[in-house]
Design a protein around this nucleic acid. Structure first.
Lengths: 239, 239
DNA sequence: GCCCGCAGTTGACTCAGATCAAGGTGCCGC
DNA sequence: GCGGCACCTTGATCTGAGTCAACTGCGGGC
């Protein structure tokens, strides 16, 4: 079924300031950037379907599902992963509030990975055919889509650079920090919404190594870890 | 200066069958896919600038250069890389004939990496502003661009999956094979146009390890290596 | 033809991080 | 409160790949 699409979303642009609509959603940025007039902004908002919340552990879509929509995370965290030849899970990425899932599905018209909610998740769903045809009439939206896609190409390379386990872990924490910061959350203190095992899998490390490195960072007063809550104490030195 | 743009490209669509124009260029596919009428096809071809060839070792653009155009490789191989904090080179990718460089520059309007010719290179250059405005009028072209971008998001993840040095090397060879095959070159026999050091850097291995693994693959009759020429003898087992 | 220099190969040694094996800790249902 | 469980931590050992160093072979210049 791909991104669940229960009861077509209620268009919201009718009442109140449309720019405040869906505050954490990546597309609010598009509206602003595009500088579109009210009528067209309304058109974009008509496209959104607010899906009903997904429970923790629920799948949003699975590898091979036909692609029909991208979705912005409104709240919660989504993990994407593939299952390799030996049946082992390979974590591809984590999507925080405001980020967009499904962009990698456009090229093949199928989702190339599974997506699962790590905590209760609410999505804004955008039918991709509708979105593209609107983009053709809204240059700002088209640009925004190009930028979103382009951004994710660069993103994928972040992991690649750092070679040692410490570097990767530090890069991961800094990455999360920046992403939370960019969406208006605290950048110096946040929850790791994923398990140590998921982090390890994502960074291609052993879970034990993740544990040890967090310990080391804490001993060096770089971070403070308390279960899944993390506080970054010394960003500069972490880089 | 970013992608070199010597003497604005001669539009070619005027004479002969436009579909045969720029045969290895990724956009020939766009023309076909879009099923556009002749007049619009002509519009697309008017956009192309065939740049003069780049010599081996010449840079096409550098990190931080303002972004204004994407480019399809017509012939030759391009390597992209960034220079990290310690001044060391980090290879990001290799672009073969028919592949498009610069897609990761859209989001920041700056090239995020350096691009250098590993052998004499000819490019088709497309002004991105012109291309986007044309895309707004040509749904097929817009789709093709979305797909190109989306494809590169998935690509970046290929390296991530495999963890052991052998796996990565095998994945690299298979990747090259598929890419050459997809563009009509022999998939079972091709030149490694990059040095062992570049391969090693790209795969985050030591050059010595690359050498040893190629040896091992050869001893196991998986490949035949002779300097930079490589022949894949047993694709199935390599996977 | 000969020499130089660079790309690639091979071998010996080392170490970061994986694996294996025990615990610890907080949380839920009963 | 108490067991059961999932998640996490810590310690001991092992190994794949990096590093260092020497060697080979090809290609270009003179």
């Amino acid at each position: 079924m791909a991104v669940p699409a229960p009861g077509r979303g209620q268009p919201i642009a009718d009442d109140g300031d449309p720019l405040n609509f869906c505050s954490t959603c990546a597309f609010s940025g598009a509206c602003l950037d595009a500088g579109v007039d009210k009528s067209r902004l309304r058109e974009l908002h008509m496209l959104v379907e607010h899906t009903s919340p997904c429970r923790t552990g629920e799948h949003l879509f699975r590898e091979g599902d036909p692609f029909n929509a991208i979705a912005a995370v409104r709240s919660g965290t989504v993990k994407t992963y593939v299952t390799d030849a030996d049946g082992r899970e390979q974590v591809r990425g984590f999507f925080l509030p405001g980020e967009v899932i499904g962009l990698d599905a456009i090229s093949e018209s199928r989702y190339p990975c599974n997506a699962v909610a790590l905590e209760p998740v609410v999505l804004c769903r955008f039918s991709f055919p509708n979105l593209s045809s609107l983009a053709a009439r809204m240059p700002g939206l088209q640009q925004h889509l190009f930028r979103l896609l382009s951004h994710d190409i660069g993103n994928a390379a972040l992991l690649a650079g750092n070679h040692t386990a410490e570097d990767r872990m530090a890069a991961f924490l800094i990455g999360l920090s920046r992403r939370y910061g960019a969406r208006g959350f605290r950048a110096d203190r946040f929850q790791l919404t994923m398990s140590r095992a998921d982090i390890a899998n994502y960074l291609r490390l052993a879970a034990e190594t993740v544990s040890r490195i967090l310990r080391r960072f804490q001993d060096e007063r770089l971070v403070r870890v308390r279960r899944r809550e993390i506080e970054l104490l010394d960003l500069p030195r972490l880089e």
